[in-house]
């Protein structure tokens, strides 16, 4: 393996933190979902690296399923958000304040 596993993890970790940052700071429902997508991708990178590290295919399988999950997430999430946008006319997460 050319790239050491540690470096892959580092990359994944940074990407993960970026995703978290996006999720936590952007006041937009779509961007939150995007941030989560980035986090998922970070996990996928880590899986790929680990799969290489351990020389097993299970990590790769994980990546495939993560992609599927991400797709589901976007479809369900966007459906919800679009629905919400139609009702409230905003993507602002702070408009979700009915329940307390």
């Amino acid at each position: 393996m050319i790239v050491p596993f540690g470096h892959v993890l580092m990359l994944a970790g940074m990407l993960f933190l970026l995703g978290v940052f996006c999720t936590l700071t952007r006041r937009n429902l779509v961007m939150i979902i995007l941030g989560v997508e980035v986090m998922l991708n970070a996990a996928a990178i880590a899986f790929v690296g680990a799969a290489l590290h351990w020389q097993s295919l299970e990590g790769q399988a994980f990546v495939l399923f993560i992609m599927a999950i991400a797709a589901t997430e976007v479809s369900v999430g966007l459906a919800l958000i679009v629905y919400a946008y139609r009702r409230s006319g905003s993507f602002d997460p702070s408009s979700c304040n009915l329940l307390r």
Binding site: F5, G19, I33, M39, F62, I69, V76, G77, L80
Partner: peptide, 28 residues
């Protein structure tokens, strides 16, 4: 319902992505 759903959904996907990353680390 929508608000409950969105809140549930967002927390859920956030938690599950954390979990997946954790699984990756564990696997690693």
């Amino acid at each position: 319902g929508l608000e409950a759903g969105i809140k549930y959904f967002l927390t859920g996907i956030f938690a599950s992505s954390i979990m997946i990353f954790g699984m990756a680390l564990l696997y690693g």
